[in-house]
Computed example of a mutant assay.
Amino acid sequence: MGVKELHESPSLSSLYPKALLGSLRKSGGSTLPSTEFVREGVVVDPAHLAAYNQVCGFRLDDVLPATYPHILAFPLQMALMTEADFPFPLLGMVHVANRITQHRQLRLDESFTLRVRAEDLRPHEKGKQFDVVSELLVNDSPVWTDVSTYLRRGGGSGEKTSRGQLSQPSPNAIWPVPGDIGRRYAEVSGDRNPIHLHPITAKAFGFPAAIAHGMWTKAHALAAFEGRLPEAFTVDVKFKQPVLLPAKVAFTSWSEGDGWAFELWNARKPKPHLEGSVVAL
């Protein structure tokens, strides 16, 4: 595997035009690039962490929420997926699942090495899917791992899966989701995909309204467990139907084994937006 070392975070303002140009080319190729992007000396800006915590519903703390490092990895993920040898254009890909493993608590004053790579291209009933793996390391030891699974629609050949149904239809809480949450999360995450920003731009991509970021819904759900989480755990989610903004969503959680299962669903219809689990290591 080749390594591409970066001395600073890639500029998202230059990557978005690159992604737009990449959308003009056809999908092609049956292999993912073997290059791993690496950046050393990654540190957290306290003001940025505070802004993220506020948008996602976490308390202010010097311990990082398990979902926060995804924000640090996002520019490298975009850089990887906009390279000329990447087989699929970035625009139009669907984020279908995300699994984060925190091996220990991460603190604000730490310095990390960040690694990002793509792997495991495989068939899906609606096209092809693959994983983008991001890792934070301290002294060459992984302390946090994020596996984001993306779907490229078209020419599906995988086995069909059953449509999701609610496991626990009685909610623990009802959350209003404001119409501007896509723009607010975009400010702290850098993810300015037009489907999240405004109804007009979302309609251009086939959505009736702007939709919430999947990683915002995961973070907001994880915030509901604050004070109960172990220091080391895995939080795994599958993204189902999008949250059309503004919205009212229902959150349900229940004990399961060494952790919890949870669902986020439309408060007016028994249809899940997200289903997931938290398991202690």
Rank of each mutant, 00 (worst) to 15 (best):
residue 3 V to D: 07
residue 7 H to G: 03
residue 12 L to G: 10
residue 21 L to E: 09
residue 21 L to S: 11
residue 23 S to P: 03
residue 23 S to R: 12
residue 28 G to T: 05
residue 29 G to H: 09
residue 31 T to L: 13
residue 34 S to I: 04
residue 35 T to L: 13
residue 36 E to Y: 01
residue 37 F to N: 13
residue 38 V to K: 11
residue 42 V to Q: 09
residue 43 V to S: 15
residue 46 P to M: 06
residue 47 A to K: 14
residue 48 H to K: 15
residue 49 L to P: 09
residue 50 A to T: 13
residue 51 A to F: 06
residue 56 C to D: 06
residue 57 G to V: 02
residue 58 F to Y: 14
residue 66 A to W: 08
residue 66 A to S: 14
residue 68 Y to D: 03
residue 69 P to D: 10
residue 69 P to N: 09
residue 70 H to R: 04
residue 70 H to C: 14
residue 72 L to N: 09
residue 76 L to I: 02
residue 76 L to Q: 09
residue 77 Q to S: 14
residue 77 Q to I: 05
residue 80 L to R: 03
residue 80 L to D: 03
residue 82 T to L: 10
residue 92 G to P: 00
residue 93 M to H: 04
residue 97 A to H: 08
residue 97 A to D: 14
residue 101 T to W: 00
residue 103 H to N: 06
residue 109 D to F: 06
residue 109 D to R: 13
residue 111 S to T: 14
residue 113 T to G: 10
residue 113 T to C: 12
residue 121 L to Y: 01
residue 122 R to S: 12
residue 122 R to C: 09
residue 123 P to Q: 07
residue 124 H to F: 01
residue 126 K to M: 12
residue 127 G to I: 00
residue 128 K to A: 10
residue 131 D to T: 01
residue 132 V to Y: 08
residue 133 V to T: 10
residue 136 L to W: 09
residue 137 L to V: 00
residue 139 N to K: 14
residue 141 S to G: 01
residue 148 S to M: 09
residue 148 S to E: 05
residue 153 R to I: 00
residue 157 S to P: 03
residue 158 G to N: 04
residue 161 T to W: 05
residue 163 R to F: 08
residue 164 G to T: 12
residue 166 L to D: 11
residue 167 S to T: 11
residue 170 S to P: 00
residue 171 P to M: 07
residue 175 W to P: 01
residue 176 P to G: 06
residue 177 V to W: 07
residue 177 V to H: 12
residue 183 R to Y: 11
residue 183 R to V: 05
residue 183 R to L: 13
residue 183 R to S: 13
residue 193 N to Y: 10
residue 196 H to V: 02
residue 202 A to E: 06
residue 204 A to E: 07
residue 205 F to G: 11
residue 205 F to N: 08
residue 205 F to H: 07
residue 212 A to D: 07
residue 220 H to C: 01
residue 220 H to N: 09
residue 222 L to S: 03
residue 223 A to I: 00
residue 224 A to D: 12
residue 224 A to H: 15
residue 227 G to I: 02
residue 228 R to Q: 15
residue 229 L to C: 03
residue 231 E to S: 11
residue 236 D to S: 14
residue 242 P to M: 05
residue 242 P to V: 00
residue 244 L to F: 14
residue 246 P to I: 02
residue 247 A to P: 13
residue 250 A to F: 02
residue 250 A to T: 02
residue 251 F to C: 03
residue 253 S to R: 09
residue 256 E to A: 12
residue 262 F to Q: 05
residue 267 A to N: 01
residue 267 A to R: 00
residue 269 K to C: 04
residue 270 P to Y: 06
residue 271 K to F: 06
residue 271 K to M: 13
residue 272 P to G: 07
residue 272 P to C: 03
residue 274 L to T: 00
residue 279 V to I: 10
residue 280 A to P: 03
residue 281 L to D: 15
